[in-house]
C-alpha cells in the first residue's frame, strides 16, 4: 500500500508520537510510506526521529513556503515541495491521513 501522511501539527503534540509509531509500523509491513510536512508540522523536520525514519525508508517532503515563513532550513534528505506537489502525492496515494 502507498500511505501518505500530512503532518501539520507541531512536534510536541500527541500527534507527533502517533505519527512516529504509525510510520514505524507501516515501514515494518513494507508499505511505501511518505510524509508531507506543512504549517507548524515543519518543526518536526528538526527532530531526530524523522531523520531515523527516513534512513529506514520513509520519504520526506515539506512545503517550502511554510519552511521559509518559519526560517527553517531542512537538511537535504528532506525533499522541498509545494501545495501542488502535495496534490500530486495525493494522486499516487492509496490512503491519505492528516494530523492537524
Amino acid at each position: 500500500m502507498n500511505l501518505l501522511i500530512i503532518m501539520a501539527s507541531n512536534p510536541y503534540s500527541h500527534d507527533f508520537n502517533t505519527v512516529v509509531k504509525l510510520i514505524e509500523a507501516s515501514l515494518k509491513r513494507n508499505h511505501k510510506t511518505k510524509i508531507f510536512f506543512m504549517a507548524n508540522g515543519e518543526y518536526c523536520l528538526l527532530r531526530e526521529e524523522i531523520k531515523n525514519l527516513h534512513e529506514k525508508g520513509l520519504e520526506v517532503y515539506y512545503c517550502a513556503h511554510n519552511a521559509e515563513q518559519r526560517k527553517i532550513k531542512p537538511e537535504s534528505w528532506a525533499e522541498s515541495s509545494s501545495m501542488y506537489g502535495l496534490a500530486k502525492l495525493m494522486t499516487e496515494a492509496d490512503k491519505v491521513l492528516i494530523f492537524d
Binding site: 501539520a8 506543512m38 504549517a39 501545495m83 502535495l86 496534490a87 494522486t91 492537524d100
Partner: peptide, 13 residues
Amino acid sequence: EALRLAVGASMEH
C-alpha cells in the same frame, strides 16, 4: 493553511 492546501489540490482533484 487548509484553504491553501485546497487551492493546490484543486489543480489536480
